[in-house]
Design a protein around this nucleic acid. Structure first.
Length: 213
DNA sequence: ATCCCGAGGG
DNA sequence: CCCTCTGGAT
């Protein structure tokens, strides 16, 4: 095992010890609801998403209901998540596609998920890892891209290449938890703007830590 | 590369 | 004011 890989494994164990309960923080009951919540989470905090989905899912609990929704009603409910016109179009289009192509049940493969409107690789990986527990890839969002670079796990910035780097560094069974750990750490300690290196549990393993002291 | 487009923090 | 928040489509 090379040096980078062993350092990556140490990072993982250290973060797991600090965040043993790290998990997806979006609220949902079904895979379809997770898909909708994940689309809404683009450029928006999950806390904000969790404020609108109870209203959204109460009125439109499944794909059939959301497919028949008036776009203006959906826009009004999700407005506070930002990009609301695009997101309303995405989630109603997503619902219509799930009804038309998959009899109202969200599919469980990367290929089928990726074909759905508004669902990119990141969203598909969130659904596969959390709702279906089949790690086909690694979620790479803004936090994971930022931390992967700061921690020296890759110098790539393209999300697909970051994902490839993480896939090569960590065993598949850890991919979903890895994403949760990096997201939690990114929120709590390794924030985009003002990282708290002084209180970071992996600062000694991080090539960027000195820059922030 | 650019657009979408709201809320909260610093 | 500026930056950031679990991106995707054009």
């Amino acid at each position: 095992m090379d040096e980078l890989t062993s350092r990556a494994r140490r990072l993982y164990r250290r973060l797991l010890k600090q965040y043993p309960d790290a998990t997806c923080e979006l609220d949902y009951e079904t895979p379809f609801q997770l898909a909708v919540a994940t689309v809404l989470s683009a450029q928006c905090t999950d806390k904000r998403v969790n404020m609108v989905t109870p209203v959204l899912f109460a009125r439109y609990p499944d794909a059939e209901a959301l497919a028949d929704a008036l776009i203006g009603d959906v826009e009004e409910i999700i407005k506070s998540t930002g990009f609301f016109r695009n997101k309303a179009k995405s989630i109603t289009g997503l619902a219509m596609a799930v009804v038309a192509r998959h009899e109202g049940t969200l599919p469980s493969t990367m290929a089928e998920l990726f074909e759905l409107p508004g669902v990119g690789r990141k969203t598909a990986n969130v659904i596969l890892g959390n709702a279906f527990k089949t790690n086909e890839g690694v979620v790479v969002d803004t936090h994971i891209g930022r931390l992967s670079n700061r921690l020296g796990l890759t110098k790539q910035t393209d999300p697909v290449k970051v994902e490839q780097a993480l896939i090569a560094l960590f065993p598949r069974k850890h991919w979903t938890m890895l994403a949760h750990l990096l997201i939690w750490h990114g929120r709590r300690t390794c924030a985009a703007r003002k990282p708290k290196c002084a209180e970071c549990v992996v600062a000694d393993l991080c090539p960027s830590a000195v820059e922030f002291r």
